[in-house]
Protein backbone atom coordinates (compact mmCIF):
# COMPACT_ATOMS: atom_id res chain seq x y z
CA UNK A 1 0.00 0.00 0.00
CA UNK A 2 1.51 3.35 -0.94
CA UNK A 3 0.61 5.78 1.75
CA UNK A 4 0.45 9.49 1.00
CA UNK A 5 3.38 11.36 2.51
CA UNK A 6 1.94 13.43 5.33
CA UNK A 7 5.18 14.11 7.21
CA UNK A 8 8.24 15.19 5.19
CA UNK A 9 11.89 14.43 6.00
CA UNK A 10 12.27 17.49 8.21
CA UNK A 11 9.28 16.37 10.32
CA UNK A 12 6.90 18.96 8.91
CA UNK A 13 3.29 18.11 8.12
CA UNK A 14 1.31 19.10 5.02
CA UNK A 15 0.32 22.41 6.61
CA UNK A 16 3.82 23.09 7.93
CA UNK A 17 3.20 22.05 11.53
CA UNK A 18 5.35 19.74 13.64
CA UNK A 19 3.73 16.60 15.07
CA UNK A 20 3.18 18.25 18.46
CA UNK A 21 1.69 21.46 17.15
CA UNK A 22 -1.94 22.58 17.16
CA UNK A 23 -3.45 24.44 14.25
CA UNK A 24 -3.92 28.14 14.83
CA UNK A 25 -6.92 28.75 17.07
CA UNK A 26 -8.84 32.00 17.24
CA UNK A 27 -11.65 32.12 19.77
CA UNK A 28 -14.01 35.09 20.07
CA UNK A 29 -16.69 35.24 22.73
CA UNK A 30 -20.03 37.04 22.71
CA UNK A 31 -20.44 37.39 18.95
CA UNK A 32 -24.25 37.03 18.88
CA UNK A 33 -26.26 39.79 20.53
CA UNK A 34 -29.52 37.86 20.94
CA UNK A 35 -28.05 34.72 22.40
CA UNK A 36 -27.43 34.29 26.12
CA UNK A 37 -23.97 33.07 25.30
CA UNK A 38 -22.02 32.65 22.08
CA UNK A 39 -18.61 31.96 20.64
CA UNK A 40 -16.95 31.87 17.25
CA UNK A 41 -13.98 29.59 16.76
CA UNK A 42 -11.50 29.36 13.93
CA UNK A 43 -9.62 26.11 14.43
CA UNK A 44 -7.31 25.83 11.47
CA UNK A 45 -9.70 26.18 8.54
CA UNK A 46 -12.72 25.25 10.66
CA UNK A 47 -15.10 28.12 11.18
CA UNK A 48 -17.78 27.30 13.74
CA UNK A 49 -20.31 29.49 15.48
CA UNK A 50 -22.00 28.38 18.69
CA UNK A 51 -25.04 29.92 20.36
CA UNK A 52 -26.34 29.07 23.81
CA UNK A 53 -29.92 29.92 24.72
CA UNK A 54 -31.16 29.38 28.24
CA UNK A 55 -31.82 28.43 30.89
CA UNK A 56 -35.32 28.86 29.47
CA UNK A 57 -38.71 27.20 29.52
CA UNK A 58 -38.92 23.73 28.00
CA UNK A 59 -41.17 23.14 25.02
CA UNK A 60 -42.90 20.72 24.82
CA UNK A 61 -43.47 20.97 28.55
CA UNK A 62 -43.55 17.24 29.25
CA UNK A 63 -39.83 17.14 28.38
CA UNK A 64 -39.03 19.12 31.52
CA UNK A 65 -37.38 17.28 34.38
CA UNK A 66 -38.35 18.14 37.95
CA UNK A 67 -34.88 17.81 39.45
CA UNK A 68 -32.59 19.16 36.74
CA UNK A 69 -32.24 21.00 33.51
CA UNK A 70 -32.54 19.43 30.07
CA UNK A 71 -29.46 20.00 27.93
CA UNK A 72 -30.18 20.05 24.21
CA UNK A 73 -27.60 20.15 21.51
CA UNK A 74 -27.64 20.40 17.74
CA UNK A 75 -24.51 20.02 15.62
CA UNK A 76 -25.15 21.04 12.05
CA UNK A 77 -23.04 21.57 8.96
CA UNK A 78 -23.98 24.31 6.53
CA UNK A 79 -24.48 23.08 2.96
CA UNK A 80 -21.51 25.20 1.80
CA UNK A 81 -19.15 24.00 4.55
CA UNK A 82 -17.70 21.07 2.62
CA UNK A 83 -16.10 20.39 -0.80
CA UNK A 84 -19.26 18.93 -2.28
CA UNK A 85 -22.54 20.47 -1.15
CA UNK A 86 -23.88 18.89 1.99
CA UNK A 87 -27.57 18.14 2.08
CA UNK A 88 -28.96 20.46 4.77
CA UNK A 89 -31.15 17.74 6.31
CA UNK A 90 -29.52 16.26 9.43
CA UNK A 91 -27.45 13.21 8.50
CA UNK A 92 -26.88 10.17 10.72
CA UNK A 93 -23.37 11.46 11.32
CA UNK A 94 -24.68 14.80 12.56
CA UNK A 95 -27.20 13.08 14.83
CA UNK A 96 -24.43 11.02 16.38
CA UNK A 97 -22.12 14.03 16.76
CA UNK A 98 -24.93 16.08 18.37
CA UNK A 99 -25.20 13.28 20.90
CA UNK A 100 -21.50 12.95 21.66
CA UNK A 101 -21.09 16.74 21.96
CA UNK A 102 -23.96 16.88 24.44
CA UNK A 103 -22.50 13.98 26.40
CA UNK A 104 -19.08 15.64 26.39
CA UNK A 105 -20.49 18.90 27.81
CA UNK A 106 -23.05 17.50 30.23
CA UNK A 107 -20.60 16.41 32.98
CA UNK A 108 -19.36 20.02 33.20
CA UNK A 109 -22.76 21.71 33.50
CA UNK A 110 -24.43 21.90 36.93
CA UNK A 111 -27.82 20.76 35.63
CA UNK A 112 -29.27 20.53 39.14
CA UNK A 113 -29.13 24.34 39.44
CA UNK A 114 -31.78 24.82 36.76
CA UNK A 115 -34.66 22.39 37.42
CA UNK A 116 -37.56 22.36 34.92
CA UNK A 117 -35.56 24.46 32.44
CA UNK A 118 -33.71 23.78 29.21
CA UNK A 119 -30.37 24.94 27.90
CA UNK A 120 -29.99 24.84 24.12
CA UNK A 121 -26.64 24.64 22.39
CA UNK A 122 -26.49 25.22 18.64
CA UNK A 123 -23.22 24.33 16.93
CA UNK A 124 -23.14 25.46 13.32
CA UNK A 125 -20.18 24.45 11.19
CA UNK A 126 -19.73 27.16 8.54
CA UNK A 127 -16.51 25.74 7.14
CA UNK A 128 -15.27 22.23 7.92
CA UNK A 129 -11.64 21.15 8.13
CA UNK A 130 -11.49 17.94 10.16
CA UNK A 131 -11.80 17.94 13.93
CA UNK A 132 -15.00 19.97 13.81
CA UNK A 133 -16.54 18.12 16.75
CA UNK A 134 -13.57 19.04 18.94
CA UNK A 135 -13.64 22.64 17.82
CA UNK A 136 -17.41 22.66 18.39
CA UNK A 137 -17.07 21.35 21.96
CA UNK A 138 -14.31 23.87 22.71
CA UNK A 139 -16.44 26.77 21.48
CA UNK A 140 -19.66 25.46 23.07
CA UNK A 141 -17.97 25.22 26.45
CA UNK A 142 -16.93 28.90 26.44
CA UNK A 143 -20.34 29.88 25.05
CA UNK A 144 -21.93 28.15 28.07
CA UNK A 145 -19.59 30.09 30.33
CA UNK A 146 -20.48 33.29 28.44
CA UNK A 147 -24.16 32.57 29.12
CA UNK A 148 -23.31 32.57 32.81
CA UNK A 149 -24.29 28.96 33.31
CA UNK A 150 -22.88 27.28 36.41
CA UNK A 151 -20.15 24.89 35.40
CA UNK A 152 -17.79 22.55 37.21
CA UNK A 153 -15.01 23.07 34.68
CA UNK A 154 -14.45 24.11 31.09
CA UNK A 155 -14.45 21.36 28.48
CA UNK A 156 -11.45 21.42 26.17
CA UNK A 157 -11.31 19.12 23.17
CA UNK A 158 -8.60 18.08 20.78
CA UNK A 159 -7.80 15.09 18.60
CA UNK A 160 -4.64 13.09 18.10
CA UNK A 161 -4.06 10.47 15.48
CA UNK A 162 -1.65 8.34 13.51
CA UNK A 163 -0.16 9.58 10.25
CA UNK A 164 2.72 7.83 8.45
CA UNK A 165 2.99 5.55 11.53
CA UNK A 166 3.69 8.49 13.84
CA UNK A 167 1.37 9.82 16.54
CA UNK A 168 0.50 13.44 15.76
CA UNK A 169 -1.54 16.10 17.51
CA UNK A 170 -4.64 17.74 16.04
CA UNK A 171 -5.40 15.88 12.83
CA UNK A 172 -6.62 18.07 9.96
CA UNK A 173 -8.92 17.18 7.08
CA UNK A 174 -6.27 15.66 4.76
CA UNK A 175 -4.63 13.74 7.60
CA UNK A 176 -8.01 12.39 8.69
CA UNK A 177 -8.75 11.06 5.20
CA UNK A 178 -5.26 9.80 4.33
CA UNK A 179 -3.95 8.94 7.80
CA UNK A 180 -4.54 5.71 9.65
CA UNK A 181 -6.16 6.72 12.95
CA UNK A 182 -8.08 9.59 14.48
CA UNK A 183 -8.91 9.91 18.18
CA UNK A 184 -11.01 12.90 19.31
CA UNK A 185 -10.92 13.54 23.06
CA UNK A 186 -12.71 16.00 25.34
CA UNK A 187 -11.34 16.66 28.79
CA UNK A 188 -12.17 18.54 31.97
CA UNK A 189 -8.64 19.81 32.72
CA UNK A 190 -9.11 20.67 36.40
CA UNK A 191 -11.19 17.63 37.33
CA UNK A 192 -9.06 15.36 35.13
CA UNK A 193 -12.07 13.63 33.59
CA UNK A 194 -12.41 12.43 30.01
CA UNK A 195 -15.88 13.18 28.65
CA UNK A 196 -15.46 12.28 24.98
CA UNK A 197 -13.36 9.52 23.52
CA UNK A 198 -13.70 8.07 20.07
CA UNK A 199 -11.32 6.23 17.82
CA UNK A 200 -11.36 5.10 14.26
CA UNK A 201 -8.28 3.52 12.82
CA UNK A 202 -5.76 0.99 14.01
CA UNK A 203 -3.47 1.58 17.00
CA UNK A 204 -1.41 -0.97 18.91
CA UNK A 205 -1.21 -0.94 22.70
CA UNK A 206 1.66 1.53 23.08
CA UNK A 207 0.40 3.76 20.27
CA UNK A 208 -3.00 3.84 21.96
CA UNK A 209 -1.54 5.14 25.23
CA UNK A 210 0.72 7.60 23.41
CA UNK A 211 -2.17 8.88 21.31
CA UNK A 212 -4.51 9.31 24.27
CA UNK A 213 -1.86 11.10 26.33
CA UNK A 214 -0.94 13.35 23.42
CA UNK A 215 -4.61 14.26 22.90
CA UNK A 216 -4.87 15.16 26.60
CA UNK A 217 -1.81 17.40 26.25
CA UNK A 218 -3.58 19.07 23.32
CA UNK A 219 -6.71 19.55 25.42
CA UNK A 220 -4.63 21.34 28.05
CA UNK A 221 -3.22 23.66 25.36
CA UNK A 222 -6.74 24.34 24.10
CA UNK A 223 -7.85 25.03 27.69
CA UNK A 224 -5.29 27.83 28.00
CA UNK A 225 -6.69 29.43 24.83
CA UNK A 226 -10.25 29.16 26.20
CA UNK A 227 -9.19 30.68 29.50
CA UNK A 228 -7.37 33.51 27.76
CA UNK A 229 -10.37 34.27 25.54
CA UNK A 230 -12.71 34.42 28.54
CA UNK A 231 -10.30 36.63 30.49
CA UNK A 232 -9.99 38.99 27.53
CA UNK A 233 -13.72 39.25 27.13
CA UNK A 234 -14.48 39.90 30.79
CA UNK A 235 -11.36 41.62 32.09
CA UNK A 236 -10.06 43.41 28.99
CA UNK A 237 -6.90 43.02 26.96
CA UNK A 238 -4.54 44.98 29.15
CA UNK A 239 -4.50 42.54 32.05
CA UNK A 240 -1.75 40.00 32.20
CA UNK A 241 -3.02 36.54 32.92
CA UNK A 242 -1.01 35.33 35.84
CA UNK A 243 -2.92 34.13 38.84
CA UNK A 244 -1.78 36.97 41.06
CA UNK A 245 -3.64 39.46 38.91
CA UNK A 246 -6.79 37.40 38.78
CA UNK A 247 -6.72 37.23 42.57
CA UNK A 248 -6.66 41.02 42.71
CA UNK A 249 -9.68 41.25 40.48
CA UNK A 250 -11.65 39.00 42.78
CA UNK A 251 -10.85 41.24 45.73
Amino acid sequence: MNETILIDESGKRTDGRSIDELREIKLTIGVLKKANGSAFIEFGKNKIIVAVYGPREVHPKHMAQPDKCVLRCRYHMSPFSTDTRKNPAPSRREIEISKVIREALEPAVVLEDYPRAAIDIFVEVLQADGGSRCAGITAASVALADAGINMRDLVAACAAGKINNKIALDINDVEDKEGSADMPVAYLPNLEQITLLQLDGILNKSQFTECLEKALQGCKMVYEIQRKALMEKYFGNDLSLDDENTEEIKE
Partner: peptide
Amino acid sequence: YTAIQKGSTGSFTL
Protein backbone atom coordinates in the same frame (compact mmCIF):
# COMPACT_ATOMS: atom_id res chain seq x y z
CA TYR B 1 -7.37 -1.08 18.95
CA THR B 2 -9.57 -0.27 15.98
CA ALA B 3 -12.55 1.67 17.34
CA ILE B 4 -13.61 3.34 20.57
CA GLN B 5 -16.77 5.12 21.57
CA LYS B 6 -17.41 6.70 24.93
CA GLY B 7 -21.10 7.21 25.61
CA SER B 8 -23.58 8.51 28.16
CA THR B 9 -23.35 11.62 30.26
CA GLY B 10 -20.60 10.78 32.74
CA SER B 11 -16.84 10.79 32.42
CA PHE B 12 -13.79 8.55 32.89
CA THR B 13 -10.32 9.16 34.29
CA LEU B 14 -7.24 8.28 32.23
